[in-house]
Design a protein around this nucleic acid. Structure first.
Lengths: 336, 336
DNA sequence: TTGAAAGCGCTAACAT
DNA sequence: ATGTTAGCGCTTTCAA
């Protein structure tokens, strides 16, 4: 193995000069830098990550905790993870993958052993048991999602309340007077995942503000459940003309169910969704939707961590504004 | 930060004794071990990962390279990744996530800097540019998938050829005489991903062996493409009664298309698929399928790496035998 | 069964 | 602008 002393000898400088040339933490004359870089290339030198971490107390590794529970949409998690890795690499960091399953002990372990410098935690719940731990760790962290009590933590997410509102406002603007929200599976609400409830809040607030008749319908992530919800809606809300869907898994089956029940989209029923753009675009009837910006979230989360690692202050809360893309599933209400 | 010398002092032993108590690399008297463990708990000691890596030249981290290209089924990748992390943790290892995008340079970097002890590479192609690199690295690796020239490498995968055969054998056993394979998107074949071609080989061989009429149909991962393939099949192969599907994304749309074209499954058409069990189970017509054993693959890949890290020899090739689960999409041919 | 001590390869004061 | 050197915290010979 070629080490920094080898490079130093080869370039005729001291080890520290090589180190500083690599880190840029102090000025090096153009000439020596050239020589050092040539030696590095020639010898194929690679700094030893462990030695670096030990000497600098920086591992240049971030921990990413991914969820694997029911009711989460896998492609979104994946896209987020890829985005985190990509963004981390831009800052010369790597990403260690942890599963939710490892729990608090896993977080504590990688933080306390100095295996990672900072942590990103996905799928945060309103009363997440990891909150006190994250507050107590000596390493910075960013949470994707908002807990009830975010004080002292850094959180980022799509503004789901605004997203719920925006969906309704759009439907209201098109003249719809009776709307329904088809939401996440019941267990998502039961475990008090903040984002699901925030959509409900926004949806309800905007519906009330616009004087709309509204109702909420959690829905399992199965086509049969979508079908049941569709039937129930037609039965209980015959005047329904606007639906907001916040459940990736049943978006397609739900539209199918409506159409099989004789409702045309968007002729009889306008639909807006909160889901990844790729999903909204790919459906038979492309759906007007608010994007789940997983790529942006991942990148922004890493930026926040880098700032914190650099000693800079960052806002406790970052809410990404919803952006609605008009597609084929919405139309003005057919006023008789 | 509490370090090993603190623990040693607190327990009244030398640092090396603490180290050995932790690693188990030499016998420690029950009594001292107790004392050391008590001290560790009391002080909340956690060995510094970097220091450990430096002194032992073992980071206890594995690299996992995940693909992110078109034509791969995201949930399978995710399930595999989770399984790798879980298995790695059982062996006291962590997992560093790399994207395919980082390419060979990424692999070389994490290996040469000693950030990782070993590597797992997914989505291997027949002539994968990473092969020479992996052979040259001084760290063990396992590839998921089989390249053309696997000599000197360790590979593991589902036996896709046997899977293709098994699907056909099953259909033949049910009396079907004209069968078709609806395969992966064309780009998957173009980039010569081994597994897709192996299914074709197995399918064709078994069809020929059984004297069946057979045809191959790559298919894009879009419902419209599935529809087109269905129409084409009915047009060109009116006697078709058996279909093998090796394309997760269009399994459902393809069945829908067949049924919309007037063919009942399994009444008029029997279908077998190679796909994750969860997908096969969840369809409106549960599909007889050969499981894509991502969880087992992940675990087995880690086991192989651990053996190699332990200095043991492992087989160059590991093929997991296909297991077919009978569901509702297959029936004996309706012989008139 | 245990201890002493020499590194592992790098960074960052402290020098000059 | 560069060199010297003392650690970073652990593992592992070598010795007893």
């Amino acid at each position: 193995m070629v080490k920094i002393t080898d490079v130093a000898r080869h370039a005729g400088v001291s080890p520290s000069t090589v180190s500083y040339a690599l880190s840029g933490k102090r000025p090096i004359s153009e000439e020596t830098r050239q020589r050092i870089e040539a030696s590095i290339r020639e010898l194929g030198y690679r700094p030893h990550a462990g030695a670096r971490a030990l000497a600098s107390s920086r591992s240049n590794v971030l921990a990413l905790v991914i969820p694997l529970r029911a009711g989460i949409h896998v492609p979104v998690v994946m896209q987020f993870a890829v985005s985190v890795v990509t963004a981390a690499r831009r800052h010369d960091h790597d990403v260690l993958l942890l599963t939710q399953e490892e729990g608090e002990e896993g977080l504590r372990r990688v933080a306390d052993t100095a295996l990672v410098d900072a942590l990103i935690v996905m799928d945060v719940q309103l009363h997440d048991p990891r909150l006190p731990l994250l507050r107590s760790l000596d390493r910075p962290s960013v949470m994707i999602g908002f807990p009830q009590e975010p004080a002292g933590l850094t959180c980022i997410d799509l503004d789901f309340m605004a997203a719920g509102e925006l969906c309704v406002e759009r439907l209201a603007g098109l003249g719809h007077r009776v709307v329904a929200l088809v939401g996440s599976p019941p267990e998502v609400y039961v475990r008090e995942t903040a984002f699901a409830q925030r959509v409900v809040q926004g949806f309800t607030a905007a519906a009330d503000r616009n004087g709309l008749t509204s109702s909420i319908h959690p829905c399992e992530a199965a086509p049969a459940a979508a079908r049941r919800v569709a039937e129930q809606l037609l039965r209980e809300q015959p005047a329904l003309t606007g639906v907001v869907v916040h459940n990736e898994a049943i978006l397609e089956p739900l539209i199918d169910a409506f159409e099989q029940l004789g409702l045309r989209v968007p002729g009889d029923l306008s639909i807006t969704a909160i889901c990844p753009d790729e999903l909204a675009e790919s459906l038979r009837v492309p759906v007007t939707s608010i994007a789940l910006p997983s790529t942006e979230l991942g990148a922004r989360a890493v930026e926040l961590l880098m700032k914190k690692l650099g000693g800079a202050a960052v806002p406790e809360a970052t809410l990404l504004p919803p952006r609605l893309t008009e597609r084929a599933s919405t139309a003005p209400r057919d006023t008789p």
